[in-house]
């Protein structure tokens, strides 16, 4: 907790106040509020996936599964059982975290592609569970969920997710996670409990994915299993990869760019996927590590800057 941290918080609170004033003054219409909520949900998803994929180096593509757990559990709590939204939100997050723990232990022995396939399978299993369960509406999903999520919820949700994950990453635990990404055997030889840190990354990542799921469920009135298929997992992965694996700032920027692009391209549906894909291909050619891959933006604000050693990295 240093000066820069509080300045960052202060600036984001000012941003929050300005947007809130614009919403209260009805200067921002529903379209903009929809977009802001989408942005917030996507940022939470991407930043939490970045903890698993970017910092800890585990290739997970089951994030939509954790998101759906948060969405369904919170919606069941509020809509079916009549509890308050904060309690539903908390239960959604915790249920997703528990799922992260359950899937974590058996699958984290797997590496690379094998882990990717296992997490993909996990995401699909969760979706099939919702699809075949009449209590949660089967294929039609749960409808009539009250709209509770607003700019305040989304803003503070994003703030908590970013602050918590940044603090983990900058702590000794974060160091240990990055060392697992860099070289698992060396990390283990240093006495770092590799499995423990992988599981922590999975549990924290899943917790926030659940939070994003609960927010989106309580904004768009209804949820259905199809919203959480593997395409959704890939969409989140693309945000992270385009922004830069292992860079929180890059992930946020990548998510904002792609979400806005996707929203504005809705006017030309026939070209939407073409342009979207072209941008992804070009980014990967010219910035293979993502927009801000491995660049620690905070270094630019430190004395002396990052010009010397911080920016570029070469892996032999």
């Amino acid at each position: 907790m240093n000066k820069r941290f509080f300045i960052g918080i202060a600036i984001s609170l000012v941003f929050y106040g300005v947007v809130q004033a614009l919403i209260s003054g009805e200067i921002l219409n529903d379209f903009y509020i929809d977009t802001l909520v989408m942005l917030g949900v996507n940022i939470i998803l991407a930043v939490s996936l970045n903890l698993i994929n970017g910092f800890t180096g585990q290739f997970s593509i089951g994030h939509a599964g954790f998101m759906s757990i948060g969405a369904y559990v919170s919606a069941i709590m509020t809509t079916n059982l009549g509890y308050s939204f904060p309690l539903g939100l908390l239960c959604g997050c915790l249920a997703a975290a528990v799922a992260g723990l359950i899937i974590g232990f058996p699958t984290l022995r797997l590496k690379g592609d094998y882990l990717a396939i296992a997490t993909l399978g996990f995401g699909e299993i969760i979706r099939i569970v919702w699809l075949n369960n009449d209590y949660v509406g089967g294929a039609a999903g749960l409808n009539g969920i009250e709209r509770v999520t607003n700019w305040s919820w989304i803003f503070f949700g994003v703030l908590v997710a970013v602050v918590v994950i940044q603090n983990i990453v900058k702590s000794t635990h974060g160091r240990a996670m990055i060392s697992v990404r860099e070289n698992e055997i060396a990390a283990e030889a240093m006495g770092i409990n590799v499995t423990k840190y992988k599981v922590i990354a999975f549990v924290v990542g899943a917790f926030f994915a659940g939070m994003a799921g609960a927010f989106s469920a309580h904004y768009f009135y209804g949820i259905a299993p199809t919203s959480y298929n593997f395409m959704k997992s890939f969409e989140i992965l693309v945000f992270v990869v385009l922004g830069g694996l292992g860079s929180t700032a890059g992930t946020i920027i990548g998510t904002i760019l792609l979400t806005l692009l996707f929203t504005y391209l809705q006017d030309i549906p026939e070209w939407r996927m073409v342009i979207y894909s072209m941008i992804l291909i070009l980014t990967m050619i010219f910035r293979p590590k993502g927009l801000l891959g491995n660049v620690d933006v905070t270094k630019f604000f430190k004395k002396g800057g990052a010009s010397k050693n911080g920016g570029t990295t070469t892996t032999p």
Partner: peptide
């Protein structure tokens, strides 16, 4: 070595 960490960070991890 942990390639994307500084030399000093590598050494510090040795004392984890």
């Amino acid at each position: 070595v942990f390639a994307n960490m500084s030399v000093e960070e590598n050494l510090e991890l040795g004392a984890f």
